[in-house]
Design a binder for these strands. Structure first.
Lengths: 113, 113
DNA sequence: CTGGATCCTAAAAGATACTG
DNA sequence: CAGTATCTTTTAGGATCCAG
C-alpha cells in the first residue's frame, strides 16, 4: 500500500467543502432546474432561510465558481443567479445524492417500524 | 411544475447529513479499503482527530447503519468497525466526489495563477 | 484499549433592523 | 430589490482528564 490515503481524503473533502452548508444543496437544486433566479425568487423558493444566510451561501458558491451573479443596473436593482458551466459538473453528484437520499428516507421509515 | 422541490431538497440533504461531518468521509474511505479496523487503528490513520470526535462520528455513522461496530469481550477490549452492506451503497457517491474533488483541486491551482 | 464525562472555543446559522 | 450591519444562539469540533 501507500501513503496516498491522506491525499485522497482531501480530494473528497474538497467536494464536501463546496456543497456543505445548510442550504447550498437546496440553492443548487433550484438553480439546476431553473436557471437565472433572482435573489427574491430564491428566498421565496427556500422557506426558512434568512436574507443574511442566503447572501452568504450565494457568495461562497460564487467564490467557488459554482454559480454566477449577474447585476442589472436598473432601478429597482435586479440580480440574477445561475449555475456556471463548471457548477454543472456537480450535477451527477447531486443527482446521485438525490437518488440515494430518496431511498434512504424510504428505508429509514421502514426501519422505524 | 409542481411543489415537489421542497421534498426533493430533503432528499439530497438527507444524504449530505450522513456524510458531512469533518472526518466522516475520511473514516468511510479508510473503511472502504480496509474492512474491520479497530478504534486505535483508525486513530492512527487519521492524524489530527481526537478520541472524542472519532467516537462521536463513529457513533453517528453507526446510528445511520453505515458502519457496524463489533465488540470482542476480551481484555484488553477490542472493537472493530466495518462498513455495512448498506454503507457500501454510498461508495459510488464517494467515488464521484473523489473524482470531482481531484479535478477541482487541480483547477483551483490553475485559477490561482 | 476503548471510550465516557467536562469544559471550552470557533464557526455557522438565525433574528432583527436598516439602506442605496 | 437586494442586500449590509449587529447581535444572539446553536452546533461542531477540540482539549483534557478519568475509567472499566
Amino acid at each position: 500500500m501507500d501513503r496516498s490515503t491522506s491525499a485522497d481524503e482531501c480530494l473528497v473533502s474538497s467536494t464536501l467543502d463546496i456543497i456543505s452548508g445548510k442550504w447550498k444543496m437546496v440553492i443548487l437544486f433550484h438553480l439546476m432546474s431553473e436557471p437565472n433566479l433572482r435573489f427574491t425568487e430564491l428566498m421565496r423558493r427556500i422557506p426558512g432561510i434568512t436574507q443574511r444566510v442566503l447572501t452568504k451561501q450565494l457568495r461562497e458558491l460564487e467564490q467557488d465558481d459554482i454559480i454566477a451573479r449577474t447585476i442589472y443596473p436598473e432601478i429597482p436593482p435586479r440580480v440574477e443567479y445561475a449555475m456556471t458551466e463548471y457548477g454543472q459538473t456537480l450535477r451527477p453528484i447531486l443527482e446521485m445524492m438525490h437518488h440515494w437520499g430518496a431511498n434512504h428516507l424510504h428505508r429509514s421509515r421502514a426501519r422505524m417500524e
